[in-house]
Design a protein around this nucleic acid. Sequence first.
DNA 1: CGATTAAGTTAACACTGTTAAGGTAATAGA
DNA 2: TCTATTACCTTAACAGTGTTAACTTAATCG
Lengths: 203, 203
Amino acid sequence: MPSETAGGLQRIILDTARQLLTDVGYAQLSMRKIAQKIGYSATSIYLYYSNKDELVHALIDEGVDLLYADLHEANRSHADPSLRLRAMCLAYIQFGLNHPEYYEIMYVLHPEYIKRYPAEKYRKARRNLELLASAVEDGIQMEHFEACEATVGANLIWTQLHGVVTLLNSERVDKRIPAETLIHSACKHILRSFLKTPQHKEV
Amino acid sequence: MPSETAGGLQRIILDTARQLLTDVGYAQLSMRKIAQKIGYSATSIYLYYSNKDELVHALIDEGVDLLYADLHEANRSHADPSLRLRAMCLAYIQFGLNHPEYYEIMYVLHPEYIKRYPAEKYRKARRNLELLASAVEDGIQMEHFEACEATVGANLIWTQLHGVVTLLNSERVDKRIPAETLIHSACKHILRSFLKTPQHKEV
DNA sequence: CGATTAAGTTAACACTGTTAAGGTAATAGA
DNA sequence: TCTATTACCTTAACAGTGTTAACTTAATCG
């Protein structure tokens, strides 16, 4: 009965899982729903993914790649470290707001989930942070930024961006504050906190 | 069979739910487990809480009060806006790290949950942000801080603190960076981004 | 005494992830 | 060509989840 497209069932499962994730969100993503959508039994999925974690990890991997592409593009678009950093911050936030479901499984899901995340994929996920760290490092080298540990600086930026994305996506930010206002203020404050004083530039 | 303590079953349910939440976390908190622990049937809980949401909302309410107490205490401990702000930032992060389960149901749980959160309790939760906003406002008034919309500033601080707490609690921050380093860097950067330049104070 | 109400129960529904066992068709070896 | 193996997929089941409907039992009230 099942309709064959190309590349086998594993591909079809992953495609359907992605579609279901983006359509109805992670909370509604179940093995049985995936199976029903593709006309197979739920247990068939276990022939290609040993459990739900593994399937979700494959989706997380996709999300990591998508985010990296966006960050990389932003990183390439400017030479100046400040502008690069600002562009990457905006790209990160935009990714989070544009792909809330991807963002949720990547960075919001329970600690237990992330603990089972394979070390190899974990390393790949860290490239995104290293992109931020390189901009911080360059800014320090060019003496635009106050000296600091670049990895700490990158994680600091990350926490700020992550907070903005998650609180906006979960609609916990006061609705009287426009998202754009918060986003641009966040970017401004991030740069302000790194730039050497005095800050006369308008970024 | 059920053992009566005092104040009726509703109190016992809430106490047991809280204990279960802090012991095994939200993911393992179920109506049936609560019921089993107190020696009642699961459906008895529905005589006092119309659904799980309502029960969790009661716990969220407790968490909001606990956090407010900590923030209020930090707010009282200093007169200078910078020191007050710093103290509150540290208090917020410490609360998040010390009560990860409370923090999760308060600020991490799915958007759907928060949508069903009653408006009355929502208003109470906002007092915590207003405490931050007042410190920002005072800093601006005393001309220590750069002028800005205080509510925007408070939300900006909140996003930074929230990011630190959630990424630390979910163990997503690079383990080579000590939590203390990240926390103090975050507080320093928050103040740096608000203080008028030049910044000669050591905070 | 009879009726009402309060408090708690059991059984069931519709879900969830996951495992064990079974079936069926194609393929490989003799 | 016959048999055995393997690949692929299924049904049935287990142990959970939140929640509802219907039932019992005891207390209270007129």
